[in-house]
Design a protein around this nucleic acid. Structure first.
Length: 493
RNA sequence: GAGUCGGUAGCUCAGCUGGUAGAGCAUCGCCCUUUUAAGGCGAGGGUCCUGGGUUCGAAUCCCAGCCGACUCACCA
């Protein structure tokens, strides 16, 4: 259990002293009238003289994150979620009782104050406190004020401490929230309905991934945490909602890395009567709008690379990209031996037994993906790796599909949806054969989904956007753990 | 899964070729009513990740394990 250390003991002692003074160390309601950020914005530029003249009253509450004592006076820095603001506590103004309370204050404690805005001798914008309300006692000390908390394990395991000690972390998650709100607003403006579909699936579907398995006792049934919401959202299109979206978690039982968390946030949306070209335009608009609204620019720096989100973005067909990047002849696209030879020549590690499609895909991932720094729509993926996408009318071996790459990373995946139930059944069966042959990630046949398609799904385009990776891009973070509040770690102890 | 690096006070970190465990911040006591990494004087605080081994003696060397980070593999 918890170590009983000296500092904690001291604070418990102070907590008792508060009680003896008739002060609740864990208080109740406090009417906050102002926030540090707003006060600074409204009055932070005013001169000492103007503030003295206006005598602006304010009431704020927050956590003490800085404390400098001067005998019978003290400066405390309050952090209230909007900003930090200094407050000045002196005996003359507070009176004996409140001054006695102020003498027991520790870093980390929560207080509420009312007072008047002024500027100190050193010109610091400050609240001179008239009344002090003790709100909550912290029993544990805060990390060191200068370096903050840097131990990454503690930062992730005790994110609450990270958020207190590192204001820039607070900023990242506030920005994440604004991005998600911005996405909602953008879609709702365009007539989308936000829906919630099951997180527990009897058949994992909608993506190629290993699922987490769970068990429902009363039903006596195995269930899977969802790997994608796709098949349920399409059922809603069948049901007659023309535009739906969902922002929620997917779960994939795979490795953890700087760009993979076992649970991650996915936006999926579906548009009836549209095709993937419409989604290209919609995606450019969405990203441009989000960047403008949250960052105020469409040119962003990601890990030292300037990325221009101004549209239009490059469109490049999957096969063309493979050929152009590697200066290969078109014949590699149809000749397995040539493709294998090309892969080996390019130093792409691929088993000699792999199919043509898999060899080409390895070449794509190794040689093309890393070059896609600026936003690029890679289009027209082969049908074998797109079991839920509509065939191209001009070439039935390809699909009406794109993936969006930014900074060498897949950010979005979209296609015109396969709405032919007989074709979908064949594709599922091909996948099921691969699954039976040992490919754990191959899709399984979902009979209810096929039944839904047999009732008729209008032509539809759908897209998924990985929200965590989008936020990484917008906040210039190299690790997904820095944009997920509580990233998955090995259980403690 | 493999490799590399790391785990020492509440936090941030020193600690060399093995010889009684250190600093700054934080804490405690005293002084201080405009500081802002406040200042001054004094004090307390350690399972050196865990378990073995080598040695007269291990934070330090060796072995095993635990936890983490990064890179690679995996993740269409």
């Amino acid at each position: 259990m918890d170590e009983i250390n000296d500092q904690r003991q001291q604070r418990i002692k102070k907590l008792d002293q508060l009680r003896q003074m008739g002060v609740a160390p864990y208080g109740t309601r406090f009417e906050v009238k102002d926030r540090a950020g707003q006060l600074t914005r409204l009055h932070g530029e005013k001169t000492k003289e103007v503030l003295e003249q206006e005598r602006i009253d304010c009431t704020i509450a927050g956590r003490i994150v800085g404390l400098r004592r001067f005998g019978k006076a003290a400066f405390a820095v309050l952090q209230d979620g909007s900003d930090r603001l200094q407050v000045y506590l002196k005996k003359d103004t507070l009176g004996d009782h409140a001054h006695q309370i102020s003498e027991g204050l520790d870093l980390g404690d929560w207080i509420g104050v009312t007072g008047i805005l002024f500027r100190t001798k050193t010109n610091e914008f400050t609240v001179e406190v008239k009344t002090l309300t003790f709100l909550s006692k912290a029993l544990r000390p805060l990390p060191e004020k200068w370096h903050g908390l840097t131990d990454v394990e503690t930062r992730y395991r005790q994110r609450y401490v990270d958020l207190i000690a590192n204001p820039q972390v607070h900023q990242i998650f506030a920005l994440r929230s604004r991005i998600v709100s911005g996405i909602r607003a953008f879609l709702i403006e365009r007539g989308f309905l936000e829906v919630e579909t099951p997180m527990m699936h009897p058949i994992p579907g909608g993506a190629a991934a290993k699922p987490f398995v769970t068990h429902h006792n009363a039903l006596g049934a195995e269930l899977y945490l969802r790997i994608a919401p796709e098949l349920y959202l399409k059922r809603l299109i069948v049901g007659g909602f023309p535009r739906v979206f969902e922002i929620n978690r997917n779960f994939r039982n795979e490795g953890i890395s700087t760009i993979h968390n076992p649970e991650f946030t996915m936006l999926e949306f579906y548009v009836s009567y549209a095709d993937y070209h419409d989604l290209i335009v919609l995606t450019e608009e969405l990203f441009g709008r989000l960047a403008q609204d949250t960052l105020g620019t469409t040119t962003i720096d990601y890990q030292g690379t300037q990325i221009n989100l101004g549209s239009p973005w490059r469109r490049w067909s999957y096969h063309q990209a493979i050929l152009e990047v590697n200066s290969l002849p078109p014949s590699v696209l149809t000749n397995r031996d040539e493709a294998l030879a090309a892969a080996q020549r390019l130093g792409v590690d691929v088993s000699p037994k792999e199919s043509l499609v898999n060899i080409l895909n390895e070449i794509f991932e190794e040689t093309v993906e890393p070059r896609l720094q600026q936003p690029t729509f890679i289009t027209d993926y082969p049908i074998e790796i797109s079991p839920l996408a509509r065939r191209k009318d001009s070439d039935p071996s390809l699909t009406d599909r794109f993936e969006l790459y930014i900074a060498g990373r897949e950010i979005a995946n979209a296609f015109s949806e396969l709405n032919d139930p007989l074709d979908q059944r064949e594709r599922f069966e091909a996948q099921a054969a691969q699954h039976a042959a040992g490919d754990e990630e191959a899709h399984r046949v979902d009979e209810d989904f096929l039944r839904a398609l047999e009732y008729g799904m209008p032509p539809t385009a759908g897209e998924g956007i990985g929200i965590d990776r989008l936020v990484m891009l917008f906040t210039n973070q190299a690790s997904i753990r820095d944009v997920v509040l509580f990233p998955q770690l090995r259980p403690e102890k």
